[in-house]
């Protein structure tokens, strides 16, 4: 039974992947992303000049990963906007609802497919560490940790995008709502300065995504951040499930 469930989830996942790679959006987004991030990398590299390996991390790795993460704040909503809203608009969501797939399988298949899109886009950035390696850079632990942190951070964005996509059948509304929520979460850290309450400040800081992401970029992998990321993703995927379930309310 479990195998059948896995097979159905896999089938929906494969369908989603085919949908994405047969359309032009992923190539347009990947092209734009690579162009912008490549240009930024080139500039950081020029600025880094004759720096040592240690300084290379703070002069190139930290800002370039920061920029990539920031760009995905805009890209993730575009990648997720059609996931459920598109199905609602085309009335194909009914096909999924009356099939043997349950909400959890639908959500997992679509979430994993959107993660694959992100990994496809990030694949092209592997060229940056290779170029750094040619100039003598060897702090691979930091690079690995930065990639891990960024992927976790982007998974958070995708989970928010999935949720907003489940709220409407209008993809544009889904994308803007997702962007609004993500921007709000980003700016939470700014509001820490507005409070003198130590406890409140810490709570707000904990809720902000960049605070957890930054430690990964600096090479610090803490269980504390994993708990945050996985609870965040789990919470928004649960909200997506509730949103799909709301037709039964």
């Amino acid at each position: 039974m479990r195998l059948i469930k896995l097979r159905e989830t896999w089938i929906l996942f494969v369908k989603e992947i085919k949908d994405v790679f047969q359309g032009p959006l992923i190539y347009i987004l990947t092209g734009t992303f690579c162009l912008l991030i490549g240009w930024l990398f080139f500039n950081y590299l020029l600025g880094a000049g004759r720096l040592t390996s240690l300084n290379m991390t703070s002069a190139v790795i930290v800002p370039i990963f920061g920029n990539m993460n920031f760009m995905f704040l805009f890209l993730a909503p575009m990648l997720t906007m059609r996931l459920i809203a598109g199905e609602k608009k085309a009335h194909t969501i009914e096909l999924l609802f009356i099939s043997n797939l349950n909400h959890f399988q639908i959500i997992v298949a679509k979430f994993m497919a959107s993660l694959c899109m992100v990994l496809f886009m990030l694949l092209f950035t592997v060229v940056f560490p290779v170029i750094l390696h040619l100039s003598g850079y060897s702090d691979w632990g930091t690079v690995g940790s930065a990639y891990l942190g960024m992927i976790l951070s982007i998974m958070c964005y995708l989970s928010v995008g999935m949720f907003t996509s489940s709220l409407t059948e209008n993809q544009i509304v889904a994308a803007f709502t997702s962007f609004g929520i993500l921007m709000g979460l980003m700016l939470l850290v700014v509001s820490v300065n507005a409070t003198n309450n130590w406890m409140l400040g810490n709570i707000v800081q904990y809720l902000s995504i960049p605070v957890h992401y930054e430690s990964f970029v600096r090479g610090a992998i803490r269980s504390y951040d994993f708990v945050y990321f996985f609870s965040f993703i789990g919470f928004f995927l649960w909200l997506t499930d509730r949103s799909l379930e709301s037709r039964n309310w």
Binding site: K15, D19, Q22, G23, A90, H91, T92, I93, E94, L95, I98
Partner: peptide, 14 residues
């Protein structure tokens, strides 16, 4: 059950 809803649930790209 096999169901054909009012709006045919078709994936146009397939």
């Amino acid at each position: 059950v096999g169901f054909l809803p009012e709006h045919a649930p078709l994936y146009d790209n397939m």
